[in-house]
């Protein structure tokens, strides 16, 4: 396991030749373990109700936005639109509200998603192992849950109220997810939250290492969403340069050769394209991050969770991938039956 000092040294490295060397290693490892395959997915926000106050997020409980939650019919509409573009991997997201989007609601969404997609993942509030198991048996293949920041003090500073305030409950969620039988777990940190990226990255790596040792059968992936200021929120993220983001991706690839790395449409097209050479294995395409955003008549009136910078359609992404001799993969997983091992 790489030391904190080594991580810091690499993050401090400014010499272009050294950065290129790092990138070359990441590139070789990615090709070695993943070949040219890039997995495509799309997010669908089905609810922006949230009971927690995270100072950096547009959906937080005190922010005055129109709260929306999709009905089953609306879910059908959104999902069939996404499926129409060829997407087979869906990531269902909600704000973190145990009341507005309880387990039953999530299960309903999963049932509908099963009709359109061959693989279903969720990025929702942390819950109990038994609840994760119900989701698993309902057909959920993956769960994404990011600790946001591992720095306890900073965590407390930005999570002011609601269940999200509970650092340990969130941090122990991946373990509960694994015990419940879920096959894919996505973890990560928000770049721009804690000012010491190195420390946060180190803690994330340690957490992943622990998960790998204790739940070796799970397929892991990491994500590094880079925070952008959101109008009216009054939250200033720490500046994280493109160079830092690239280094984080390379480091992750080098330290964890088999772990997936995800880069969302938060990042612009040029950066996303470049990052594909350096360890990214999963990208979203044609994303909309507002509830009902795919089929709304006036999508600009909706409140997105974050602004999309890469607006390319699925076809455009596929074309780019093929042009650069990558292999776009819509599905590498088809669920037959999610049976609990116990």
């Amino acid at each position: 396991m790489i030391s904190l000092q080594k991580i810091k040294n690499i993050l401090a490295q400014q010499k272009p030749e050294e950065v290129e060397r790092l990138a070359r290693e990441a590139n070789q490892i990615t090709q070695h373990y993943f070949g040219r395959a890039i997995s495509l997915y799309a997010p669908v926000y089905i609810s922006n109700y949230c009971s927690s106050h995270c100072t950096y997020c547009g959906f937080h409980v005190h922010n005055r936005i129109d709260r929306m939650k999709l009905t089953p019919d609306q879910m059908h509409k959104e999902m069939s639109h996404i499926a129409g573009s060829g997407i087979e991997n869906i990531l269902i997201l909600t704000g973190e509200s145990y009341k507005a989007t309880p387990l039953a609601y999530l299960k309903e969404a999963v049932e509908i998603a099963k009709q359109y997609f061959s693989s279903i993942s969720l990025e929702v509030h942390p819950m109990e192992e038994a609840e994760y198991r119900e989701l698993f048996e309902a057909g959920v293949d993956g769960i994404a849950i990011y600790q946001e920041t591992y720095h306890r003090q900073r965590y407390a500073q930005v999570h002011l109220s609601g269940k999200k305030k509970d650092y340990d409950y969130r941090r122990s969620a991946p373990e509960r997810i694994a015990r419940a039988g879920i096959r894919q777990i996505s973890m990560g940190i928000l770049l721009g939250l804690a000012d010491d990226v190195g420390e946060d990255l180190y803690e994330l790596f340690e957490h992943l290492r622990w998960m790998e040792k204790n739940f070796p059968g799970v397929e892991y992936s990491l994500s590094f969403p880079r925070l952008r200021p959101i109008k009216g929120l009054g939250f200033e993220p720490c500046s994280v340069t493109d160079l830092t983001l690239i280094k984080v991706i390379c480091l992750t690839r080098i330290c964890f050769p088999r772990v997936g790395i995800n880069l969302s449409t938060r990042e612009n097209a040029q950066l996303r394209n470049r990052a594909l050479d350096l360890g990214i294995t999963k990208i979203s395409a044609a994303s909309k991050t507002s509830v009902g955003g795919y089929t709304a008549e006036n999508p600009e009136e909706l409140d997105p969770q974050f602004d999309i910078q890469d607006e390319r359609s699925v076809d455009e992404i596929v074309q780019m991938l093929k042009h650069r001799k990558f292999d776009p993969v819509f599905t590498d997983w088809r669920r037959i039956e999610n049976e609990s091992a116990a």
Binding site: P16, E17, V19, R21, A23, R24, I246, Q270, D277, L278
Partner: peptide, 16 residues
């Protein structure tokens, strides 16, 4: 054991 660097930077030149 380090790999050799060479003068061109096709992967990360865009950052600089």
């Amino acid at each position: 054991i380090k790999s050799h660097a060479n003068s061109s930077s096709p992967l990360t030149g865009f950052l600089f």
